[in-house]
Design a protein around this nucleic acid. Structure first.
Lengths: 176, 176
DNA sequence: CTATCAATGATACAGTATATCATCGCACGG
DNA sequence: CCGTGCGATGATATACTGTATCATTGATAG
């Protein structure tokens, strides 16, 4: 059984008001949950995959959601420690982040060693992250055609594709 | 003036025999220099950009060229130290690697914190690296259409694209 | 109650990267 | 020639990122 150690109702650390954001690109467009709605969606996806949504994991997700840019594991560790009122160690946070990434409710931005929530959990895109070299802000684009093409190009060489890392470094609209 | 401290003829540390390799994808195809020819091409590109091809830099490039997979900065540091017969420190190697990446004669594989020579220096592609999760071997594909598309998708959002990070993690033909 | 198992904690350490200041060596002007 | 300037490199310290190992906790099945 996988339902052991069910956590208490998650810790309340205050919330931004929920809202619906909208993103669009040539190839992809859909509504994004935010705030509680996003956390709930993530929890749902995560549990459906057979993982436990513990108190600590909920806090890590919540903390991650509140960063407006990708956060380093140690920044997250710090914020989680604040949130729970005791020292949480980095390895614990790394474990949880790895689970999140594996479960597709968060992503790792390789070129900045940082983590960010998946804005549409359960929807398996290859996100293209646009990372500003100046301010660090990171947005993302989903373009399924590009993702398909890039996987096809790899497959054609006999490579079995698993995870795509698609990132653009440059300057965001603000900093350009 | 930028022509100061012209290095002595580069250190001889033995060479693999040169040959011409060939790579092809749907969208891109050309001959690749190897061995001395590659080093010479890289030097030419590097100097044309106004950087000095010092003895140490030549050695770093040579060492990098001899790895059959992307190498970590510390692996490179070790090999360079061997090659020159004294301890070279990591920061020096990092500096040189940064120059190489900036000058487009080497690339950094972000998802494995490693460096690899640019197989076609002077030819500004956005390489797609295919990194084997099992053996670490890394090949690359150049597909200008994908690169163009991905940059276009980013530009359309108002992002000024500089460097693309296009990597696929998975299993190579051997390990699949 | 207690054996078990996943989650988390504590600690240490490995690996990656940068900052700072010192030194060295060539080129140039005098 | 000599000294000055400057880029490259060296030395050192330290910060940041990530993993390994073993201990502890807490819920639960039996």
């Amino acid at each position: 059984m996988v339902t052991r150690q069910v956590p208490d109702p998650r810790v309340a650390i205050g919330r931004k008001s929920d809202h619906i954001a909208r993103v669009s690109t040539a190839a992809h467009q859909h509504r994004l949950p935010a705030g509680d709605a996003l956390a709930t969606a993530a929890q749902s996806v995560f549990e459906r995959a057979g993982d436990q949504w513990t108190n600590l994991r909920a806090t890590v997700f919540d903390v991650l959601m509140r960063f407006d840019r990708p956060a380093s594991a140690y920044e997250i560790t710090e914020a989680v420690s604040q949130a729970v009122g005791r020292r949480v160690t980095a390895n614990t946070v790394y474990r949880i982040l790895d689970l999140f990434v594996g479960g597709n409710i968060a992503a790792r931005v390789e070129s900045s060693n940082a983590y960010i929530v998946n804005a549409h959990p359960g929807c398996r895109h290859d996100c293209i992250f646009l990372v500003c070299d100046r301010c660090g802000n990171t947005s993302h684009v989903d373009d399924d055609r590009i993702a398909t093409d890039i996987r096809a190009a790899a497959d054609k060489t006999g490579f079995k594709t698993l995870r795509a890392v698609l990132e653009m470094r440059g300057l965001c609209g603000e900093c350009a």
